[in-house]
Design a protein around this nucleic acid. Structure first.
Length: 151
DNA sequence: GCCAACGTTGGC
DNA sequence: GCCAACGTTGGC
């Protein structure tokens, strides 16, 4: 079982959006390293934290579960989408994303500032300078501690 | 809006 | 294969 942190801009897709729809393909990932980690590392039943980025209230806001690790991202074929990729074909799609299920919304957001100031999170990829990954594995200890903060 | 950091692109 | 230019991410 793996534990993940998945980032999304809440103006694009928020924890409330996921709560409303229940399940969703995590689309829009256009980074090869992230794509490969979905394909090669992620497993059915993995747990994932939902992180709000590029917004006023940055931080971890809830929990998800992986329903399917590597689904074809439909936005790559949609010429009207900002995630459209003209080089991708139906026969040989380039981009994938997990299907995730809503588990819970935290009663309190865990702000980035709190994560930064707690030694237990010092090794998270999230805090690494220049990190460009929108999804990555965290440890069970980090996951559990963040859930405890949020509940 | 700024800007540091880093991934991608494309000419050579 | 190198590397400069460019684009994007994402916190502040």
């Amino acid at each position: 079982m793996n534990y993940w942190l998945l980032k999304s801009e809440p103006t694009e897709f928020s924890i409330d959006d996921l709560k409303r729809v229940g399940e969703q393909i995590w689309d829009g990932v256009r980074n090869y390293q992230v794509r490969n980690s979905f394909r090669d590392v992620m497993k059915v039943g993995d747990k994932a934290l939902f992180y709000h980025s590029s917004c006023k209230e940055i931080g971890v806001v809830g929990e998800m579960e992986v329903v399917l690790p590597s689904e074809v991202d439909p936005t790559q074929f949609d010429s009207k989408s900002k995630y459209f990729d003209a080089a991708s074909t139906i026969d040989s799609p380039r981009w994938f994303g997990p299907k995730v299920r809503f588990v819970s919304k935290f009663s309190t957001r865990v702000p980035l500032s709190v994560i930064r100031s707690d030694k237990r999170f010092a090794n998270m990829i999230l805090l690494r300078t220049g990190n460009r990954l929108s999804a990555f594995v965290i440890t069970k200890e980090e996951y559990d501690a963040l859930v405890q903060f949020g509940r």
